[in-house]
Computed example of a mutant assay.
Amino acid sequence: MAACGSNMDRGIVISDEWCGYSVDLFTFPSHYSGDLDCVLIPHGLILDRAERLARNIMDDLGDHDIVVLCVLKGGYQFCADLVDRIKALSRNSNRTIPMRVHFIRLRSYLNDQSTEDLQIVGAEDLSFLSGKNVLIVEAIVGTGKTMKTLLQHVEAFRPKLIKVAGLLVKRVASSLACVPDYTGFEIPDRFVVGYALDYNEFFRDLDHICVISEKGKLKYKI
C-alpha cells in the first residue's frame, strides 16, 4: 500500500528564490495578457520530466497490470502525457504494462483557497480495484489533506498495491508530508495555473505552468 511520506524523492526542486521566466519569452493565449506573473515551468520541461517518470514507473511496475486512477480536472493533461509515454516505452521494450484508465474528480478549492469541503466524484464504487495495482495520477499535492483522504478512500477497496504519481508538490507549512512515489517538481507555495491546472476553470488552456498575478485573481474571482 502507498502511504503519505513513504518516498522522499522530491523530483526537480524549484527554490523559493526562483522568480521564473518572463512570460514575454513564450507564447500564450493573448486573453491572459497581464494575468500571469511568470512562467514557472515551461511545457517542454514538463514533457521531458513526464518521460523520466514513465521510465521510473516502467522500472517498478513493468510486466504488471495496473489501473491508472486519473484525478480530474487538473490531472487530465499530466495523466494523458504520462500514459502516452508509458505506452511508448511498452511498445519499444521487452517489458510491458497493460493499463486501464479510470477517472475521478476532486473538488476542494474556492478561488485560490483550499476548503474543508472535499468532494470525490466518480469514486462511489471502486470495487473493481480489489486486488489490483493502482497508480493514482494527480497534478498537484499541497497540504496533503486531499491526497490522504483519497488514499484512505481507495484503500477501503483493498487494492494489491497503490502508487502515486504527482506532477507538482508544493512546499507548504501545514504539509502532512504526503509525498508521491513519483514526483515531477517540488515548487514554492505559489498559486500556479496552466497545463490543465485552473483558477475558477480559467487557464487550463495554457501549455506552461505559470504563476497567476494578483490582477488575474481579481479578474476571474467568483
Rank of each mutant, 00 (worst) to 15 (best):
S114N: 00
S114K: 03
S114V: 11
S114Y: 00
T115H: 00
T115D: 00
T115K: 00
T115V: 01
E116Y: 04
E116M: 06
E116C: 02
D117S: 11
D117M: 02
D117A: 12
D117C: 04
L118Q: 00
L118E: 01
Q119K: 14
Q119H: 11
I120Y: 03
I120E: 06
V121R: 02
G122I: 02
G122Y: 05
G122K: 01
G122T: 02
G122H: 04
E124A: 04
E124Y: 08
D125M: 08
L126A: 12
L126W: 06
L126P: 07
L126R: 04
L129Y: 10
L129T: 13
L129R: 06
L129Q: 04
S130K: 15
S130G: 13
S130C: 15
S130M: 12
S130Q: 15
K132C: 13
K132E: 15
N133T: 13
N133Q: 08
N133V: 12
V134S: 08
V134D: 03
L135Y: 09
L135A: 05
L135N: 09
L135S: 07
I136D: 05
I136N: 03
I136T: 09
I136W: 07
I136S: 05
V137Y: 03
E138N: 03
E138L: 02
A139K: 02
A139F: 02
A139H: 01
I140Q: 06
G142L: 03
K145R: 12
K145E: 11
T146A: 05
M147N: 00
M147T: 08
M147C: 00
M147V: 06
M147Y: 06
K148N: 15
K148F: 13
T149D: 04
T149I: 12
L150V: 11
L150P: 04
L150S: 03
L151C: 13
L151A: 06
L151Y: 14
Q152N: 15
Q152V: 08
Q152G: 15
Q152H: 14
H153L: 09
H153C: 09
E155Q: 15
E155V: 12
E155M: 15
A156Y: 14
A156D: 10
F157K: 01
F157S: 09
F157I: 04
P159K: 10
P159H: 10
K160L: 13
K160M: 12
L161I: 10
L161S: 15
K163E: 14
K163T: 11
V164P: 02
V164H: 01
A165L: 11
A165D: 11
G166W: 08
G166H: 03
G166Q: 05
L167R: 02
L168I: 08
L168K: 01
L168Y: 06
L168Q: 07
L168C: 03
V169F: 11
V169L: 12
K170I: 07
K170P: 02
V172G: 01
V172Q: 06
V172A: 07
V172Y: 01
A173P: 01
A173T: 07
S175A: 07
L176W: 03
L176Y: 07
